[in-house]
Design a protein around this nucleic acid. Structure first.
Length: 379
DNA sequence: TCTGGGGTCCTAGGACCC
DNA sequence: TCTGGGGTCCTAGGACCC
């Protein structure tokens, strides 16, 4: 395969940065996004110490991260570390608007874009670099850096927001590289840089090595990606299975052939909610039933708006002890009807033990099939 | 006052069919 | 009576990611 030039672009503290455009007076202060809507519009922005309830940080500004706050952290725990940090509820409609703006700005320069959620993308720069560098003697990596630099400026011009970009021969390394100089970084890594720049990093930094795998690796004395690269591939396969073990070995050497995928069909749509207070299956039966029905109605609405029907209806339930279970049922014919989804999900609910308080309820529809043309639906 | 909400992919076992 | 494969579909759970 010809060498490729792949970029990973990651918006810096995206949700928080969008809020700072709206509230410029908060710039330089520790701010976190998360929790449910809590203050009346127009009221003063509350500090973390004033918050009570469930919820986690979705994004923290760099000033807030200095206190040890990070996304995923419970808000009550965060309040202990930084009681004076300011707290704003998430405004997803606004973030989606900015997401479209930055992605459009990138696509105008480099069309081969893979969506990886609201605030990050992969970009295949190979064609641009080849056509741009073909005329001169310019080193292609210098050319790739120039394109990435232009993308960074275009994103800032379009949105007023900064991003970090990694440019390398593949998605795995680019994802890693974009994190090396946040915020506002542009990091170029070539294959030859892997031993010096990648191997010293903790194994956990690799996209695909999560907390569980990292802990198992640690027990084998594997802490860095260099340790992993030196590990015997056969023993990795023995311990982690044929597929994941082989992947671990390849990944530690910075090898990844996955293409940049510019469009893919969704596989499932779901809605779930964590209750303000755990609900009792008997005493709070009516409230649970209302919430359950409304979740079904919301998934049905999502399906209809986006133009899909689905055949597998799934229920998700989390008890007060955080134990989570799922049940699903595959119908003969796909549906997007709220009533049909509710009936199937109701059958699933009959198959779970309801002997303790419930924390979360969710409804999922899978095995999707498209019913209208993609350009007709509105995001 | 621990632990949101929306996804993807993988594994493993059982049913069922040939 | 016991014993085969292989293949597909369905279900449940778990790891991981943003």
């Amino acid at each position: 395969m010809q060498p490729r030039f792949i970029a990973h672009l990651d918006m810096d503290a995206f949700y928080a940065s969008v809020e700072l455009l709206r509230y410029p007076q908060l710039r330089g202060k520790p701010v976190v996004i998360g929790g449910r809507r809590h203050a009346a519009p127009g009221a003063a922005i509350p500090a973390l110490r004033e918050y009570s309830g469930r919820g986690v940080i979705t994004t923290a500004t760099y000033e807030a991260r200095a206190f040890g706050l990070h996304s995923g952290m419970g808000l009550m725990q965060a309040a202990k570390l930084a009681p004076n940090a300011l707290l704003l509820p998430a405004d997803f409609d606004e973030y989606r608007r900015y997401s479209r703006m930055f992605k459009d700005a990138v696509r105008a320069l480099a069309p081969q874009v893979e969506d990886r959620g609201i605030d990050e993308i992969y970009i295949d720069l190979t064609e641009l670099v080849r056509s741009g560098a073909a005329g001169g003697t310019l080193d292609p990596w210098t050319s790739a850096r120039d394109v990435a630099d232009a993308i960074q400026r275009a994103v800032h011009d379009a949105t007023g927001l900064t991003c970090s970009i990694g440019v390398t021969p593949n998605k795995l390394l680019s994802k890693l590289a974009s994190e090396l100089q946040k915020p506002g970084g542009l990091t170029v890594l070539r294959e030859a840089d892997v031993p010096a720049r990648v191997w010293p990093l903790p194994a956990r930094k690799l996209n695909g090595i999560g907390p569980k795998a990292a802990a198992r690796l640690e027990t084998l004395g594997i802490r860095t990606l260099g340790d992993l690269a030196r590990a015997d591939p056969l023993s990795l396969i023995e311990r982690f299975g044929r597929s994941y073990g082989a992947w671990l070995h390849q990944a530690a050497h910075g090898r990844d052939e996955r293409p940049v995928i510019t469009w893919s069909e969704p596989k499932s749509l779901s809605r779930e909610t964590t209750f303000e207070d755990d609900l009792h299956p008997v005493r709070d039966r009516e409230q649970l039933s209302r919430i359950f029905t409304s979740l079904c109605a919301r998934v049905a609405d999502d399906l209809q708006r986006k133009g899909y029907v689905g055949r597998t209806i799934g229920l998700k339930l989390r008890y007060d002890n955080f134990k989570t279970l799922t049940r699903d049922r595959t119908l003969d014919e796909p549906t997007a009807d709220a009533g049909a989804i509710r009936r199937a999900a109701g059958e699933c609910l009959k198959r779970v033990p309801l002997d303790r308080r419930i924390r979360l309820l969710g409804v999922r529809v899978g095995m999707l099939r498209r019913v209208i043309a993609p350009q007709l639906f509105i995001e």
